[in-house]
Design a binder for these strands. Sequence first.
DNA 1: GCCAACGTTGGC
DNA 2: GCCAACGTTGGC
Length: 136
Amino acid sequence: MAKGHWLVKQEPTKYSWAHLVRDGRTYWDGVRNYQARNNLKGMKVGDPVLFYHSVEGLEVVGIAEVAREAYQDPSTADERWVVVDLVPVKALKKPVTLDAIKGVPALKDIPLLRQSRLSVMPLDKAAFDAIVKMGS
DNA sequence: GCCAACGTTGGC
DNA sequence: GCCAACGTTGGC
């Protein structure tokens, strides 16, 4: 299967990029939305994942990578929910703000803008690369 | 702090 | 199976 590109959102007050860097690795728990869950299940080891700060910051701050594919969420006994493991790869030199993304016509249709409540979403390679480029 | 969007729940 | 009520998310 082709490599996927992804974007995950988190409120920095709950789990920030800096926190991920400090931890070195984390499992991405707390997803309780079927669409987001299905996206988690689509992740493969090695897939790059953009890390977005919602509510505070409103910017893409770094690039992480899938270290382990979907498995039962250890924070619940409910077997409907899964997590993946993420490791930090590198911070963006310049965070890419939501405003900046909105200003790019080619990025008008990404789920981040179209579906503001979705917390785990796929990006196509072009969109992923465009955001990374804006941040470097 | 407000409100729009949207997913989930529960009564019928 | 429909739909109103409710809860949560996230931008502003």
